[in-house]
Amino acid sequence: MNWTAIKAIYTFEMTRFFRTITQSIISPVLSTSLYFVVFGAAIGSRIDEVEGVSYGAFIVPGLIMLSVITQSISNASFGIYFPKFIGTVYELLSAPINFFEIVIGYVGAAATKALFIGTIILITAFFFVDITIQHPIAMVAFLILTCISFALMGFIIGIWAGNFEQLQLVPLLIVTPLVFLGGSFYSISMLPPVWQVISHFNPVVYLISGFRWAFFGSADVPILTSLLAIALFTALCLGVIWWIFRTGWRLRA
């Protein structure tokens, strides 16, 4: 393992993040505050408790997941797409590193950024609602796993994308709907039976449910199912990345 190279990629990516640190912090803080004002205060005041938790608190795990998933994907996809776009990818390809070291560097940095933003949102949430986290270790573990697995997915999108439009396409058309329909703002049990069944095909449901369990101790699906789902998703992404590595798809002529 060329750890020096991994560190170089990681540091370089994090420098980019910290160069725009103000907007990196302000943007999630602002959007989270807006969600709390709209969903928590305006709409939430008309909704009874959900699964024994006030609506404002209930949406916290979903809100964090929403941002973390979007951020992981966009950071990782941009991270590897940008060198391809401006041509600096030549350096990655000619360096004495293998593809997995490249993945660790970029995915690690993207996951760190997403984790950072997730933490900021959690801190912001404490200003609006009272939350006690019942399983803090599981909460952190879930958060980290989500950051990594979706950064892996973002990395694949970044390799695949041939232009900026495609880079936006998957997050916009697939991920955002899945996250919104994944129970970010509601419990699956609040849906009509048909939609409950359909929801079980949405992988994000398992993530948000598991994450919510770590907060409140109650979930839409059993926690083990959630863990299994995220493990499967990570394995799938790793499989695709392994295939890209074998074939040099969209990287090496």
Partner: peptide, 17 residues
Amino acid sequence: PFEKVINTVRFSRGLFG
């Protein structure tokens, strides 16, 4: 374009281990 000269050179050295 937005990177500093020294950082990009540091990156290259690190990338080569």
